[in-house]
Design a protein around this nucleic acid. Structure first.
Lengths: 160, 160
DNA sequence: TTACAAGTTGAAGTGAACTTGAAGTCAATG
DNA sequence: CATTGACTTCAAGTTCACTTCAACTTGTAA
């Protein structure tokens, strides 16, 4: 009635490599029971959790952030529809922001770079205010940083 | 009349750290002349080039891809407006794709995860066909991968 | 009993995009 | 002349999200 899944099955059904699943478990994003042999056994519910993780990554969250999100699920009972939708609702804002940025970039592409006016100091295409929402790689600071006064340039690749 | 900029000035005006500028130069994305002392001197035109780099990163291109793009600029003369707009025009398609994906994700967030139907195998929210356009981190393969037949799971972190 | 597939762990490697640190150069200033 | 500041190079370190490898265990099939 509740057949537990092996890691290979979960990998196949989720499209996430087994090594990645072990990694997620190490990070505490998912959990597994163990068969007598020591092999991992997953309840089917893990598939939804993994779906959520993959989903969140596509949106741009780091695994750390995803862990924080997931920790908001009720620890005492299996999450139900409303639990999930509560989490995901907060993300629509984030998606909208990113969409807005892309629209700005798109506009800037033709208007700013295309026309020749592009000035890093004036043309605030990439929404520098929204540093926290930065997705993907890129220089630590962007136009809009301390205009004159020198501020410490962060140590380490990404502020976290 | 053509005052050359020091690396500190370029860093300040572009918002890109001096170490990053040296790194970009190492990759061949930008160039510099040298003062007698061996110090880098940049023509003001470098600012536009850097703007383009940062811009492209925000859109999701890797530095490698950006290098390829930049190499399409005329090598014999200083790039003019049309040269830039030619490059950037190709990107609007890319931006549009990403925007479309985010819209799909947004819809899926409420419809699929929210409603509880989310099945990694059926719900193709993240447009798995469009593997090449993947931005940001994420598992190597996603739903839509070989359904039964086992195919080699790629070696190395990212296919390129 | 042997063989094999499927799993385990821990450590080390990978690639991208940088940053940091050490040691040195050069020009100007006190 | 000594020092300071801005810069140089080269090597090594950092984070993220994994993958790969080596050595080992278990369960099943021939």
């Amino acid at each position: 009635m509740f057949p537990l899944l092996t890691i290979a099955e979960v990998a196949r059904r989720s499209g996430v490599a087994a090594s990645a699943l072990r990694y997620y478990e190490e990070l505490g994003l998912i959990r597994s029971e163990r068969a007598g042999s020591g092999h991992r056994r997953y309840p089917r519910a893990v598939l939804r959790r993994i779906a959520f993780i993959v989903f969140a990554q596509r949106i741009g969250l780091s695994l750390g952030e995803i862990g924080t999100e997931l920790s908001r699920l009720p620890p005492d009972r299996a999450p139900v529809r409303d639990d999930w939708s509560l989490l995901s609702r907060a993300w629509t804002a984030r998606i909208d922001e990113r969409i807005a940025e892309l629209h700005r970039l798109r506009a800037g592409l033709t208007e700013c770079i295309g026309c020749g006016c592009l000035s890093l100091e004036r043309c605030r295409l990439a929404n520098p205010m929204d540093r926290a929402a930065a997705l993907g790689p890129g220089p630590r600071h962007w136009i809009g940083d301390p205009p004159q006064g020198r501020r410490r340039r962060g140590a380490g690749p990404r502020p976290g």
